[in-house]
Every structure is written in C-alpha cells, then in structure tokens.
C-alpha cells in the first residue's frame, strides 16, 4: 500500500472541508472493505485518506418523511434492525445476503453505493425501494435517486468533493410485497451471478405498482422500467411475469467473467425476474 496521510475529521463540516481542499487527492474511508483492497493493489493511490468513523450521526437511522439511513450504517445493522425490517424488508433481505457476517459488520451502506461494483446486492434493492441518496459537498447538498446514481463500473455521479451522507427510503406503498433473489450457483459467500429485486403491489387482482431492478447484469445495477410498465395493470400471473422478464433482460449487456458468459447471465436474469415476481406476489403481506 502506498503511503498516505490519514485524517480524521470530527464533524461533517470538517470532513467536507477536507474533501473540498484535497478533492482528487483524497479518498474517504468508511468500513474500508473496498477501499483498502484497492489501495493494497495500487488501484487507487490517494495522498489523503479521510476517516469518517467519528461522524457518529452518520451511523444513525431516523424516521422523518421516510427512513433516513446514515451513510455509515453497517450492513449488519440494517440486516438486524427491526425498523428496517418494517420499513423496507427488501433492503434487509439484500443486506443479509451480502458476503459474510464479518464483512457485513465492517461494510457500510454509503461505502457500498459509492463503491458501485455492478455485482453488489444493495443497489438493486435500493432502486426497487425507490430510495434516493443525499449527497453533500461544501458547495451544495443534492438528492439523487438510486436509479440515476450509478454511471458505470465503479462509477457514480459523485464528484471528488462529495460525500454520501444519507440513504433515504420513502415509505413503501401500502400493500406492496417484495423479494430479493441472489443467484449463487457456486458458494454461499460469493458475489451474485445475477440478482433481482422486486417490489409489487397488487389490488383487485391487478398489479398496481411494480419495481424491478437487477444486479450483476452489466456495468451498473439497472432498473427494468420497461418491465415495470408492462406489468402495470396486468394480472400477476406466470405468462405476464415471463413477458416482464423478457422485457427486463432483452437489452442487457452482462459482462463476461468467471461467473459466466453474457448469454448465460441474461438467461439466468430472466429466470430470476420471474421468480422474484412470483416470490413477491405470493409472499405473506407484511
């Protein structure tokens, strides 16, 4: 690991100041599970590493016009929190399937989304929850919807001086049910080969609201807007789910890697879109 100076601000203002000052030369560190790995392999070589662990209020969750999750909240906290289970069981479920307990105790939600690996579990879940992210810098504070946040492999809309401070999950529509499926054909601790998050509300035998998002199917997690539209107003049955899966996966361009070929992943994505929709529409009502 290349040498760097470690800085540990006491407040958000101070952190934003440091980021504003060092910008490109600095990286913030939360759990470190992604950043340290990158630094060890010289994939990033920041001159300054800004530790966020003293920003205690970013480790907290508050209910205020939705669930506001501090960016430093660990995945383990999210997975075990009754509040999250009530608000957004989909997010809890996705967190539960990330890596292993030890990694979930270290890894933060803010770190995950800023990391923006396309195979992460939390981004599709957040997209299907209609979550948005509060992003702050010395210049401004802005809100970015989850589905607009990710721009490429390990790339996001974040500017070098910006910090994710909050992940906001709005109150979920009444009557909606959810499912998160992570396809793990090898071992249980693996990254997803593909993953699907679904949130569906059904009323009078018709889908009134659907959210579908997929992970590990391309350069970023993607929201399947076409499939969502296609389902709206339709009966929640197998044929319609298959059509939705077709719409959700037809244009995907999954990456070729050791977990499979693009073609295989596209097929697996389609299978799991159907399954996620089925699971969501047959799950017990919360």
């Amino acid at each position: 690991m290349k040498p760097f100076s470690y800085l540990e601000p006491d407040s958000l203002d101070e952190a934003l100041d440091l980021l504003g000052r060092h910008g490109d030369d600095a990286k913030v560190i939360a759990g470190g599970t992604a950043l340290v790995n990158f630094m060890k392999n010289d994939l990033v070589e920041p001159r300054f590493v800004i530790g966020l662990r003293r920003l205690k209020h970013l480790q907290a969750m508050t209910e205020d016009n939705g669930l506001r999750i501090g960016a430093l909240t660990t995945l383990r906290t999210l997975e075990t929190s009754p509040t999250v289970a009530g608000y957004a069981p989909l997010l809890a479920q996705a967190c539960r399937l990330v890596a292993t307990v030890r990694i979930r105790m270290m890894a933060t939600l803010g770190g995950a989304i800023a990391y923006a690996d396309p195979a992460l579990d939390t981004p599709p879940a957040l997209m299907a929850c209609d979550a948005s992210f509060t992003v702050q810098s010395r210049r401004e504070a802005r809100t970015v919807p989850a589905y607009q946040f990710f721009t490429g492999i390990l790339e996001t809309v974040l500017a070098p001086d910006e910090l994710v401070t909050e992940i906001v999950v709005p109150r979920q529509p009444t009557g909606c049910r959810t499912a998160y499926i992570k396809f793990l054909p090898a071992t249980h601790d693996d990254y997803a080969t593909v993953s699907v998050a679904a949130r569906v509300a059904v009323a009078d035998g018709k889908v009134v609201d659907a959210r579908i998002a997929l992970g590990a199917v391309g350069a970023t997690a993607v929201r399947a807007a076409a499939a969502e539209e296609l389902l709206a107003g339709k009966e929640p049955n197998a044929a319609n789910f298959r059509d939705a899966a077709q719409a959700a996966t037809a244009d995907l361009e999954p990456l070729k890697d050791i977990r499979g070929s693009p073609d295989y992943k596209r097929k697996m994505a389609a299978v799991h879109v159907v399954r996620a929709l089925q699971a969501a529409t047959t799950a017990p009502h919360p």
Binding site: T100, A186, T187, H188, D189, D190, Y191, I258
Partner: peptide, 28 residues
C-alpha cells in the same frame, strides 16, 4: 461443485483471489 482455476486465452489464471476461486464454506 465450486472450485476451478479459470484461465484466460493466454493461459493466465484469472480466478486470482479467494473471492473468485471459490472454496467451499461451512454453509455449502
């Protein structure tokens, strides 16, 4: 079931970390 050294076209091993070379875990 889960282990395999993957090779690139030039014979380089591309399953080069224990994140990609999957040893069975206690769950498996």
């Amino acid at each position: 079931v889960c282990e395999r050294l993957h090779f690139g076209d030039d014979g380089a091993v591309i399953s080069a970390t224990l994140g990609d070379y999957k040893l069975p875990t206690v769950m498996d």
